[in-house]
Design a protein around this nucleic acid. Structure first.
Length: 282
DNA sequence: AAATGGCCCAACCGCCTCTGT
DNA sequence: GACAGAGGCGGTTGGGCCATT
């Protein structure tokens, strides 16, 4: 039953991705859509294993990823969901479409764990395998329904439209404005790869800053200003995938709203009741 | 200004689940 | 139903960055 690691082959590169690799991967996915990761290394010529490609896409290059500080609301949501779901980061991430499971996991491990431990509430939140709440059935149903909705929306948002030869996001109904005005502007018509372009432009800039003391590299600016990525991707403001599940605006999912209605401070006891050891299957 | 320690995050590893044959 | 391969997930780690001494 012991299978050799998929990245065992010789010639498979490891370590940080270069901007060139990013561009190659993004270009391929823009053309073929995400999926069939097995074929990606051979089709693109990338010296990476399929897993590495998928991870790079989902955790970094995927459009709509918000980086930087977590808002209070996001933080609360994560704390609530962690109490409900345990360390199911992917499930938690489905409520924060702009955040990756890896980001949430990192944020939990580096910030929230510490914070909650200081508050003295971590033991309650994490350690409990205790009693189940009487209302378990009720919230579990809501949770299940909402997770399904979130997943459906996400898969629709990432669906590939062969006619337009583009990845399609259903942003048409999304006009969310941020409650705090931070990183939450919505541009429903912005291209799907805008964020990626922005990312890569920044990457290129940084990379060249670090390495171009010898090269005259005016090409850097040309590329980062969009002519290189041009028709595929244009340097537009960051947009989310438009799920209507905005983590920092008013359009939270039903469950998110429901969760955030509760005060974290108030409901530690409830957390204990609700936390963990439910066999919620998705 | 240099050394050191701690923090953060991208990426890897290995196991589990899902899907096709 | 059994098996194999691919994808997905969570835990962990290594290296770079930053603050402190």
């Amino acid at each position: 039953m012991v299978r050799p690691p998929c990245c065992d082959k010789e010639g498979v590169k490891k370590g940080p991705w270069t901007p060139e690799e990013d561009i190659t991967l993004v270009s391929y996915i823009q053309e073929h859509g995400p999926g069939n990761w097995r074929a990606v290394p051979s089709k693109t010529g990338l010296q990476r294993c399929s897993k590495s490609c998928r991870l790079r896409w989902t955790n970094y290059l995927r459009p709509g990823i918000k980086r930087g500080n977590f808002t209070d609301q996001e933080e609360k949501l994560i704390i609530h969901l962690q109490a409900l779901l345990g360390n199911r980061w992917a499930a938690i991430a489905s409520y924060l479409p702009e955040r990756t499971d890896n980001d949430i996991k990192n944020y939990w491990n580096t910030h929230l764990k510490k914070k909650l431990r200081q508050d003295g509430s971590l033991d309650c939140l994490v350690g409990s395998t205790g009693q189940r709440s009487a209302s378990k059935g009720q919230w579990e149903k809501r949770l299940q329904t909402d997770i399904n909705l979130a997943k459906q929306a996400l898969s629709e948002a990432l669906s590939f439209d062969p006619k337009s030869d583009k990845l399609v996001s259903n942003t048409t109904t999304t006009t969310t404005t941020s409650s705090n005005g931070e990183n939450c502007s919505r541009t429903p018509t912005s291209p799907f790869f805008a964020f990626t372009t922005d990312n890569i432009s920044k990457l290129l800039e940084q990379w060249n800053k670090g390495s171009n003391s010898n090269s005259g590299s005016s090409s850097t600016e040309t590329e980062s200003s969009g002519s290189g990525s041009n028709s595929i991707m244009s340097p537009q403001p960051i947009d989310s995938v438009g799920l209507g599940l905005d983590s920092c605006g008013p359009e939270l999912s039903m469950l998110a709203e429901w969760l955030l209605d509760e005060s974290v401070d108030q409901d530690q006891g409830q957390f204990c009741d609700m936390s963990l050891d439910f066999g919620v299957k998705f």
